[in-house]
Design a protein around this nucleic acid. Structure first.
Lengths: 69, 69
DNA sequence: ACTAAATGTAATGTATACTTAACATAATGT
DNA sequence: ACATTATGTTAAGTATACATTACATTTAGT
């Protein structure tokens, strides 16, 4: 199971799902699915999203029971 | 375009493609495809591979023209 | 109350990640 | 020379990421 902080960071940056999708080249539905944890995006997309938030992929996405802290 | 250091690190750890695949739950062909850059794995798989090598996803995979140094 | 923007969600379609099976080749050990 | 192991690669199938369209609900602004 994969977890993420996309929704939290998107809110912090004041982006809508549509904004973020546009910036990283996917639709708002794709962002919505990712936030819901419905699927595991490609590492390319994960890198693009992490880049928008200026953090590392490992700080945005983590595997169940694998949290840093 | 996505680049990675999987082959280099796998060699450093003395794993065969089969060894690594088994550890992260995919076939050796999948590891082979990833090393060749044929596709962008899911972030779940990227996290598992990075964990094996004890490095961050961002140090294993990067987008064209996005290299840290 | 009305409108517009943002989100949730569902259906269907396409692209691509990943599997399975197979065959070829190179390298190593006996 | 033979067997074994690792890798390259290809073809065909399955699973899933992601797009597109559409509609309902919520929230903020007037």
């Amino acid at each position: 199971m994969l977890h993420n902080r996309v929704k939290e960071l998107r809110a912090r940056f004041g982006f809508t799902q549509g904004d973020l999708g546009e910036r990283v080249g996917v639709t708002r539905q794709t962002i919505s699915f990712i936030e819901k944890g419905d699927f595991s995006p490609s590492v390319s997309l994960a890198l693009k999203i992490a880049r928008e938030f200026e953090i590392k992929v490992d700080e945005l996405f983590w595997l169940e029971g694998d949290r840093k802290t």
